[in-house]
């Protein structure tokens, strides 16, 4: 069997779902970069930009991170507490993105 990647549950909210075919929840299988010993948020964002975002990627990312104003929760926890881009992800982790840039 092919070695598979890491299964991650993604959830796009607050308007970000509009960038990926208006679907909020995505179950994805993210292949590791060659030589990497695990998945980190930096690589996940890269993967999402290439594979999921269908339009206006600049609404989601700025540089190699999410753009300011997009909140990220990893397993219900503010990613600022787990190391932002360096947050390590494991099988079946849940990552939620919420845009605050769409008005209230």
């Amino acid at each position: 069997m092919e070695p598979c990647g890491t299964l991650i549950l993604l959830n796009f909210n607050g308007g970000l779902e509009l960038l990926c075919r208006s679907t909020k929840v995505h179950h994805v299988d993210v292949e590791l970069k060659p030589g990497a010993d695990g998945l980190i948020m930096k690589d996940l964002l890269c993967w999402i930009r290439t594979n999921l975002i269908k339009e206006r990627p600049e609404m989601f990312m700025k540089g190699d991170s999410v753009r300011p104003g997009v909140l990220v929760l990893v397993n219900d926890c503010d990613w600022e507490l787990s190391g932002n881009l360096d947050t390590r992800l494991e099988e079946k982790d849940e990552v939620v993105f919420i845009s605050t840039l769409h008005g209230g």
Partner: peptide
């Protein structure tokens, strides 16, 4: 404000600012 109710998913997104 965004985090407070987030698992309730109770609001609809508005226009971009």
């Amino acid at each position: 404000i965004v985090i407070y109710p987030y698992d309730l998913c109770i609001y609809s997104p508005n226009a971009y600012r």
